[in-house]
Write a protein that binds this DNA or RNA. Structure first.
Lengths: 233, 233, 233, 233
DNA sequence: GATGAATGAGCGTTCATTCAT
DNA sequence: GATGAATGAACGCTCATTCAT
């Protein structure tokens, strides 16, 4: 596949080791200064290898970016599931997943922003791989949501959108770090976020307004709000 | 201030006209291909001026980026308020603001992503200006939220976080366009999002689990954050 | 056509001037050190321009080679015909052509070898242009040969091969310069060559012309062409 | 001497074997793609050895070129003399020599051009060796010419120049292959060339020999002699 | 004020050569 | 003796910026 990074070296263990060396240097540098601004020479220096060596494990600079972004996405996949181990209660699993996601991101804020900022420079097929990996991470969350719905802990909400809400909430910790950092800890952030999303925030009076606004239009293309309003009332 | 873009030309009207010409070309190009990849020559070509001319209205390439990002942020500020005009009901205003924000973003998806992607390359002081303008847009939303709270339509929620939640929701339409585009219209997106955020999604049973996990947290929607330390401990 | 060298500059006079500047430096350098060994920086230096300038008049290094080789071939085409002006006698024209060719080559030995050595690096279509230009130069010779045949000065020889024989004879002055240089002058070389090639194949009528042109040289050891032409006829 | 290629390996038989392996790969590759364009890695690959191994039998890349060019020149020396064995008539020997030369060149067109193209990159002393080897090949021809003159078969022609004429004639088969290839066979080329060059300068006595040889020409090793005698007749 | 030709620092990449295994 | 991973100097080329016109 044109998606794969091809190395001129044939010893797999060495390839893995070297690519890791390179990609960690790259994540650090790309995260801090940006992909385009960072030269291959800098990556080599930070990885403590020669320029030439990099080109034995990578075909071009885009390969390095691809390796770096992949690693970031993989790290999510690697670190979230363990946080759910041993937990049975769907709600508990859900909260743990969100918290774990938040923590992974908090541990690698620059890397998370990096994915947002630089994925664009990958060629189509690789961008798709990255997106698919992101989708896999999202799945970790949406599975939890679905479990909660199945067990009757959540209403039959808009799972798709809720998942994206939660994902964006986690990403926001990185994307808006300049705002949140210093204002609170990642744990407080997650707590407040979960509360906000899970606790109903509209008052009885508010619900009335809301209904009026959405009154008839409710239907356009939207869901069957039928049962819900009943429960709410 | 070092924040301002200084032009060598002294006729203000001309400066404004030329800078607009330049920045529109830049937004288009930077949005589509990225800032670093786009050359000044390309910007000049698209703006139908000479390279030299650009440097009479701008000191360097970063200036062009600054001009471009500024314009994007300004456009939010310009286009959202009119959508609220004539509306009195706080809830209605809130919904209208969110919808307007969604529409502005939908109309300039690339430009919105551009801000996320390229703000980093501005020097500190200018990055701060951009962030402040973003804060001003956020204020448009948070004001509505606060009005709702004040009028008792919303619980005394976590305004700060709710605002960010809503802002991220709108931005997600651009940031995750590859996912949402084609799946629904911006209007449906806003409708579903508002419903998700304003409608309580947790069932009674769910609330019990939630309470157990969060320890004391008490009632359905109120928030005495007291319990937090307990939970963490 | 993909054969043409495209310049970013649009003033034709300037393009011509600059390309000339570049190509003369290139001919000199490529001729002396070879195409692959010569860097663009060296060409720039010798042409007394900056590296960047070269790339405004040329798309890549191959363009420079193409320009250089073209110029060499063109110079043949430019300098041989004038040597024939005013001459009517076919034999005289023939000799003048060979001599002129020899002189052009003598004046640009390195350049001539350059064509042999480096044409290969041009892409197909351009190599064909070069070959066609060489064919045009050959035509200058073969036309003379044909005139001589038509006027009965030469036997009805193998024109194609004779032309190539003569062309190679001229080229050999450059290709084997290390042998001939110092051993004789280009004029002596041409004289001896013409004698070697013509003396015999010339008809009785041709011999008379030949004698007139070469003054005395006459019959040293030469030819009992008597029987031959008979034989050939 | 700095002319010799020094190997780090001390077993002469091995050195010879390996160098042969290397130089054959090199001739093929250099002939097809050129010396500067071909990497040592490519040579190693084609010779089915490692890069490192090459550097145990060769000091640097120029050594490889030297080895390659030497082999080409040596092959002439190796293959022409046998073609003269058993032939006594000077004219016959002469023709056989030319034909043999033509055939060697035809068998290795690329290699012949290679010598012209790449000899220049050798350092002085080695270039001289190559030239000397070329002179030895020329001697094979000039000896034949001189024999013909001595025996009164040729006029007392310009031996030096005639030799070069003949050599260039043979080389032209390779240098102008793009012209001749497809137009005729090497045998026809040689026949026509000999006719062009000898026919005239041959003495009456020589003509008799010449006729005898080309008569039924059955001999050498040559191609469809059928049409030839016809043409010649 | 407007133009675009000219500059040259700096980048991605290659490849001859070395040397530990 | 044989291997091929590692090195880093050096090249082709780009592009932000300047400045004479």
């Amino acid at each position: 596949m044109s998606v794969k990074v091809v190395s001129k070296v044939e010893i797999p263990a060495l390839v893995e080791k070297r690519q890791k060396q390179i990609l960690h240097a790259a994540i650090e540098l790309y995260g801090r200064q940006g992909y385009h601004v960072t030269t291959i020479r800098e990556v080599a220096q930070r990885a403590k290898v020669s320029v030439g060596l990099i080109y034995q494990y990578v075909h071009d600079k885009e390969d390095v970016l691809y390796l770096a972004l992949n690693e970031v996405l993989d790290s999510y996949q690697r670190e979230i599931p363990p946080a759910l181990q041993g937990l049975d209660d769907p709600m508990e699993r859900f909260c743990a997943a969100v918290r774990a996601y938040g923590h992974v991101i908090d541990a690698r804020i620059d890397a998370t922003v990096l994915v947002y900022r630089e994925t664009k420079w990958l060629r189509r097929a690789r961008r798709d791989v990255i997106k698919q990996k992101e989708a896999m991470t999202n799945k970790l969350i949406s599975d939890c949501v679905e479990d909660c719905v199945r067990e009757g802990l959540f209403d039959a909400v808009d799972v798709e959108l809720l998942t994206y809400q939660i994902v964006m909430f986690c990403h926001a910790w990185a994307l808006k770090a300049w705002h949140f950092r210093g204002r609170m800890s990642i744990d407080e952030y997650v707590d407040r976020g979960l509360k906000l999303m899970l606790d109903p925030l509209v008052t009885r009076e508010g619900a009335r307004h809301w209904k009026r606004i959405c009154a008839a239009p409710a239907e356009p293309r939207s869901k069957p709000p039928a049962g819900k309003s009943a429960r709410r009332a």
